[in-house]
Simulated scan of single mutants.
Amino acid sequence: MKIITAKEVEALLQEGKTLHIIDVRENEEVANGKIPGAIHIPLGFLDVRMNELDKNLEYIIVCHSGGRSGMAANFLTSYGFKAVNMIDGMVAWEGPIE
C-alpha cells in the first residue's frame, strides 16, 4: 500500500497541486472539519459509492488516525483504483479545514 503523511499532503496543496482526497470518517467526525475539497464517503458506504470514483485518478484516503483509511485504500486498490493512505490521519493535520 502506498502511504503519504499529513505534512506531505499539506505541502502538495500549498504548491497548488490538484489532489483527490476521500475522507472516510463518520459524519460526526467530519462535522468538526475536513481537508478543503475532500470528498466525504464514510467507510461503511465506500462499496456502494465507489462507482462515483474514477479509476484514472489517484485518491488520498484520510481518516482520524490512519487505520480506517488503510482499510479503505486496500479495498479500493483491490478493485483497481489508485489509493494512497494518509498514514497519520487528521490527528496530524495542521493545514486548513472546512
Rank of each mutant, 00 (worst) to 15 (best):
K2E: 14
I4W: 11
I4V: 08
K7L: 12
A11K: 06
A11H: 08
L12G: 00
L12Q: 13
L12T: 08
L13V: 04
L13N: 00
L19W: 12
L19N: 06
L19R: 08
H20K: 08
H20W: 02
I21S: 08
I22D: 02
D23S: 03
D23H: 08
R25K: 06
R25G: 02
E26F: 00
E28L: 04
V30G: 10
A38P: 02
I39D: 11
I39F: 10
H40S: 04
H40D: 05
I41Y: 05
P42K: 08
L43R: 04
G44W: 15
F45E: 13
L46Y: 03
N51P: 01
N51K: 11
E52G: 04
L53R: 03
L53Q: 07
L53C: 08
L57M: 13
E58N: 05
E58D: 12
Y59D: 11
I61T: 07
V62P: 01
G66R: 04
G66E: 10
G67A: 10
G67S: 10
R68H: 09
R68G: 02
M71E: 12
A72P: 00
N74T: 02
F75W: 11
F75K: 06
L76K: 00
T77R: 15
S78K: 10
Y79S: 05
F81G: 01
F81K: 00
K82M: 13
A83Y: 08
W93Q: 07
E94W: 05
E94I: 00
P96V: 14
P96D: 15
I97R: 11
I97N: 03
E98K: 07
E98Y: 09
